[in-house]
Design a protein around this nucleic acid. Structure first.
Lengths: 248, 248
DNA sequence: CAGTGGTCTAGACCACCGG
DNA sequence: CGGTGGTCTAGACCACTGT
């Protein structure tokens, strides 16, 4: 049920342990919405850590929206009207699980293709990078069709995996991490509205002219190398994008 | 043209000055994409600041995507394929200016209304908070209609301002800050696709059945008090939402 | 092994807020 | 004025990477 004592750094650093303790006190209501929580110097004494460590813990909690600070007045438990965590970069698989839905997929197309020149330019890839792996998939939530996912992966000829592997693991990002060591770290996304054409309507299945959410993603690794460019079409009646924003 | 020396804390803290210096070196290409930048201990000596201050500067730059760290190897200038700043919470006015467009508005409706009970519940407002200020506005970019903005502001009877003031200032968020001291700090947004009905089509003006991007926002102050609930409809052919995400 | 970033300490002084 | 958060220092040791 969570600790009240801080142990020397072992797996979890002290600031992480302290942040967990404070977060739990707030979530359980011990420190209610909008209430003043102990000052940094008090926490320093209570938990036998230095003020730097206290501040490191509080910095995390501020970024996640659990507390806010007011210079000269104190640190306060945040009011619980908003989501506590920012929307961070996740795979479709994680996204669905987070919504309590069972993710599914059917691979429509899998293989190396020529990278269309305009796309290669848009992504700023070198001229010699002409090939890419293309994966087109139907996406399901609790067995119901929810979207069409069209990916281009500008992988080298040594970076390969089998269609079977993707089917087995289910999550492309998980496969990229475990098999190729490519860790997804960031993405540029644009979101727009469109309507289904005949082909899309048949796949999803809906009527042509019904609204769709169109998301285009450029996904990068920790070293900011391009991992994936994807176009995803979602049924508007079954998917909405949600996000929590904070001011710097 | 940017400094190479760090001055004692005066308006801009040392870590901010250092972060600016490093950012400029990267933007000017002195430290190229993917290159190793000086280690924390080198920067400490070069700039005559403590390592804590160096790390505080680098922390900022990591969050903004200018550099990344690799434990045991060093700190690297990020590759410049992605946006450098996260999408942060902005007003429509700021959003348009950031895109190089001239924001505009026409107020369709301005006045106190009963807050619909389901909306009051959804927002978790107390029962006695029955009234709200409702503002419905057309939104323009470079004079072209781009969206319909429908806001509910659960303000107290003492928190008032004139329609004229909003027309004069242009930005609701700026008005709230300067006149009522309400600083917008965070928002929950959901984004979905829909199609225009007859009424919306006439206003925008487009044909009924054309796609629209629907954004619902719940906006809060620094103290996490609810400031605004808004529904915004954007013409899909003139507006797309874009965002940069990072993994924790 | 040396060098890197990651964690942590015990102090100091400044800027801001309230009584 | 005392108490708060904001900035900053000069150290220390740990964990990880490469050679």
């Amino acid at each position: 049920m969570g600790r009240d004592h801080i142990y020397p750094y072992d797996l979890v650093p002290k600031y992480g342990q302290l942040a967990d303790i404070i977060r739990q006190k707030i979530e359980r209501g011990e420190w209610g919405s909008g209430e003043l929580i102990p000052s940094e110097r008090e926490l320093e004494g209570m938990c036998q850590v230095s003020r730097t460590t206290v501040r490191q813990a509080l910095d995390m909690l501020v970024r996640r929206g659990y507390v806010y600070r007011d210079h000269g007045r104190g640190t306060f438990a945040a009011l619980r009207k908003f989501q506590n965590s920012l929307h961070t970069l996740t795979s479709f698989t994680q996204d669905m699980k987070g919504r309590g839905l069972q993710p599914g997929q059917k691979i429509l197309c899998f293989g190396r293709v020529e990278l269309p020149a305009p796309l290669r330019q848009q992504l700023g890839l070198p001229d010699e990078m002409t090939g890419a792996l293309r994966i087109e998939r139907m996406r399901y939530a609790d067995g119901e069709p929810i979207g069409i996912h069209d990916s281009y992966l500008p992988l080298g000829p040594d970076q390969v995996f089998e269609r079977r592997e993707l089917e087995r693991i289910g999550s492309l990002y998980e496969l990229l991490e475990t098999h190729l060591g490519l860790v997804v770290a960031e993405a540029d996304e644009t979101i727009e509205a469109t309507i289904a054409d005949q082909h899309e309507a048949t796949l999803l299945p809906i009527n042509p002219g019904e609204p769709l959410l169109l998301m285009k993603c450029t996904v990068g690794s920790q070293q900011r190398q391009l991992i994936e460019y994807a176009k995803v079409l979602y049924r508007a009646d079954r998917y909405q994008y949600s996000i929590h924003l904070m001011r710097d």
